[in-house]
Simulated assay, not measured.
Amino acid sequence: MDETFLAMLDRNAGHADAFDDRFDGLEHEQHPEAVTVCCSDSRVLQDHLWGNDEPGRQFSCGNIGNRVVQRTEEGPRVSGDVLYPLAHTDTDVAVVVGHTGCGAVTATYDKLTDGSSEPPGIEHCLDLLAPGLEPGVDLLPDELAREDAVNHLVEYNVDRQVEFLMESEDVPESVQAVGAVYDFQDAYDGKRGEVHVINVDGETDPDALRERHPEIDSRVQRRWTY
């Protein structure tokens, strides 16, 4: 057995010791307060970034590019991973979390600008991101450095995912959709590891967001308005 997995089992033993009594009342049902969809990047510890260590509190989804879109026979629809808690567990907050330096956004940018390709499984994911990102590529300021272009598009992608949630007939109107960016590159003013709010229910203007939601004034920050 590979030593890496053996070490993982050892860490799980510690987890089980700490969590053994935290599942009381949750064995047969769940009612998480929020569903989050985050990029499945090893640098982004989705539950940890929210300080979440309580089973049942948060429904956590992950994929490359923090997508809420999936293909169905009826066309693009909200992914079942994200939709399930909104439809079945009384969850009424959906949070899309992008992150600086996103590899999926980078690969989609390369695909759209120079035709770069990836293995079929990755191409499938990029093809779900590309229709939303393509207009953003065209809007990028001229002579923007590659890293800055990617981080601009990280915001643009989060906006598109929030928009898709809000426009879906499958998502209850009572759901609040929030878009945010997790920063570990010092791309925003603040500490590495902070979450910066860039979109609430489709509103993307920082001044308007601060006025509507003064309680999050210090966490509202965007790199790009377009």
Score class of each variant (00 low, 15 high):
Y156T: 02
C125I: 14
R57K: 15
N52M: 12
T89L: 14
S116G: 10
D138F: 03
G132Q: 04
L112T: 04
K111E: 04
L144N: 01
V158E: 00
S40K: 06
G75L: 07
P172W: 12
Y109M: 08
V97E: 01
V158G: 01
G103Q: 04
C102G: 06
E134M: 03
G98A: 09
V96W: 01
A87N: 06
A87F: 04
R146C: 00
V137G: 07
Q46L: 15
G121L: 13
L49V: 15
D159Q: 00
I64W: 07
V96R: 01
F164H: 03
F59A: 12
D53P: 01
T113P: 02
E155P: 02
H152R: 14
A94C: 08
D41Y: 13
F59L: 02
V35C: 07
L49P: 00
E167G: 09
M166L: 15
K111Q: 13
E163N: 04
L153K: 07
A94D: 00
T100W: 06
L112W: 06
E134L: 04
E167V: 00
D53I: 07
V175S: 04
V158F: 02
P131N: 08
L165R: 00
D138G: 10
V150C: 07
V97Q: 05
G103Y: 05
S60Y: 02
E147K: 10
R146E: 12
P135F: 12
T72M: 09
D53G: 11
V93H: 03
V37S: 11
N157E: 03
G65H: 08
G115E: 07
P55W: 13
V82E: 01
T91N: 05
V137P: 02
D138C: 03
E147S: 13
P85L: 11
L126M: 09
G65A: 15
V35F: 06
D81C: 11
S116C: 06
G121W: 08
P76D: 13
E134V: 03
Q46R: 12
R77G: 05
R57H: 14
S60Q: 10
L128H: 04
R43V: 14
Q58C: 10
L144K: 00
R67L: 15
E167P: 00
G98W: 07
G103E: 03
G132M: 07
V97F: 08
S79P: 05
P131H: 10
D92E: 15
G103W: 04
A104W: 03
D159A: 06
G51E: 09
S168M: 02
P141R: 08
N52R: 05
P120T: 09
G136H: 09
V93E: 01
Y156K: 00
P172K: 10
F59P: 00
E123V: 13
A107T: 03
L144E: 06
S79Y: 09
G115S: 10
L144A: 07
G115P: 04
M166Y: 01
G56C: 14
L139V: 04
V93N: 00
E54I: 15
E54N: 13
P119I: 12
L165Y: 02
D81N: 14
V68Q: 05
V44N: 04
E74Q: 14
G121K: 08
P76T: 11
A130E: 05
E143G: 09
C102E: 05
V78W: 07
L140P: 06
D170S: 10
D159E: 02
D41A: 15
E54K: 15
C38Q: 12
V137C: 10
S60A: 15
